[in-house]
Design a protein around this nucleic acid. Sequence first.
DNA 1: CAAATAGTGTCTTTGAGACATTATGCG
DNA 2: CGCATAATGTCTCAAAGACACTATTTG
Lengths: 297, 297
Amino acid sequence: MNEFKDKNGLTEEQFLASYHPGDYPKPSVAVDMAIFSAADKKEDNYRKLPEKELKLLMIKRGGHPCIGTWALPGGFVEPDETTEQSALRELHEETGVDNIYLEQLYTFSDPHRDPRTWVMSCSYIALINSENLNVEAGDDAKDAQWFTVKLDTVSQHTSEYDGGFEKNTEYSLKLLSGDTVLSAVISHSFIRSSNGSQNKYEIIKNDGIAFDHAKIITYAVLRLRGKVQYTDIALNLMPEYFTLTQLQQVYEIILGKPLIKAPFRRKYCMLAEPTDKQTADAGHRPSQLFRKKWMSD
Amino acid sequence: MNEFKDKNGLTEEQFLASYHPGDYPKPSVAVDMAIFSAADKKEDNYRKLPEKELKLLMIKRGGHPCIGTWALPGGFVEPDETTEQSALRELHEETGVDNIYLEQLYTFSDPHRDPRTWVMSCSYIALINSENLNVEAGDDAKDAQWFTVKLDTVSQHTSEYDGGFEKNTEYSLKLLSGDTVLSAVISHSFIRSSNGSQNKYEIIKNDGIAFDHAKIITYAVLRLRGKVQYTDIALNLMPEYFTLTQLQQVYEIILGKPLIKAPFRRKYCMLAEPTDKQTADAGHRPSQLFRKKWMSD
DNA sequence: CAAATAGTGTCTTTGAGACATTATGCG
DNA sequence: CGCATAATGTCTCAAAGACACTATTTG
């Protein structure tokens, strides 16, 4: 705080004392969260390892707008909290879980993204340890469900022209939970021209996902795919003790493709600290259990 | 839009027609921009190549709060525009320039970051081609200045404890323009524990930079440093024709460290397309001129 | 032994880092 | 010729990708 006076001869202190916010329009700001976890698929053959699946928590909307469709958990930011605090608060209300990884994803601000009024969404990615997955939805467990996430690239075109190019990628997003299937097609276009560059995400088709949340989910999965390769972010999805094969499975479901064992272990063994525990009663050779070893850079 | 009725028996259409926003408090949302460019330093010896400097556009505040300090260009988001459109609009007002790279950086939401009232800042990075740098500030050229940016790591400590660790990095930020020197010390702490993880940026010391903008600038430079290594983002700072040495200089000022020529060229020659032009009258061997070749992935 | 996974060895290719060498224009 | 930069060559080392091989448990 300094003692310069402004053109009205007021100090900053005096200015602030007499300040009252104008009456211009303001947006509502919501926090929406893509809460991921990695869970075991059911496996009948007891000798086989269960496959992993990437799960996302969604909530069925009980009121307008988008009634009957599924939305990301979220809520409005309250005065005297940051968006991050708001996310943690809602996360706790929704899942009862505290130990969580949280990362700001993107602020979506299309003024018409909510049909009611002007609502921006400051979105977050949350990763939760699969041990805590049992903690099913908060208040009334009613309409919160974990959906299996599948995101595939269905087409990709690059057209070059003088001084730039345009790259168009189409993603198919599928969310599955029991008999419920939600799906969407999202196009991402990246346009480079002498007039600058532009990234645009558009919902081409949408079946059952509220608001622009299909876009947010796609963006979140793509961010996860990127960061999993050069950070230790995936550890947040792991339980306290895990095998290297389980860690590899988590990488595979995030990346959406199989990885080769030996090089995977060479690259990511730094994320795991060996313990003297082992798996047992598995119908095959037991596996050493590891615990998380966070990277420091 | 679907035809489900809610608990009041209203269709979505009817609901929206009767909807009016509640009266709960809302934040103002500002867009702040870190507008970078890469400019030549003056060089007396005509035989030597001029060095490059990373520049950032700042605006001197003429009113409270933070009167007399320097702030990032920005303004409030208006209804019916996205934050990105708002950034482009203000960018045009401020610099008169249109061909610009724009990327959302982060949404800063500490409710006390603006002493007046509750203002969130959705911040952007903008990169402008140094050819257009001459376009000095918009309306009245008065209090807009390009500052040379220096960001150095002054200390880094990692302390490990059971089940987690804390990493603390202190950055010194210096902004120089003529005789004006703005400076700040920002600490970044990254805390990993069994209770989740947390990233925190704090302003430790601040001399002449408005609001929390020292934090935004630090965050922006760190983002640039990261992305320059695996994207073609640096090309946005280059003029139409450039030498590979100039491209290397731009990388060096962003990363804040010297690079070795041969491997740099091997790695980044893919970003440049040779032309048949050359530099001339330089007092030494002429250099081939290249133009931008955007990557497509 | 068969099924199934655990864990390791090794070859090839790629690329980063570091340094050295040759080339060229200008005064 | 000497300065200063341009441009390329090469050696080493580390890591990614791909595949093969050995080890160990249970029924």
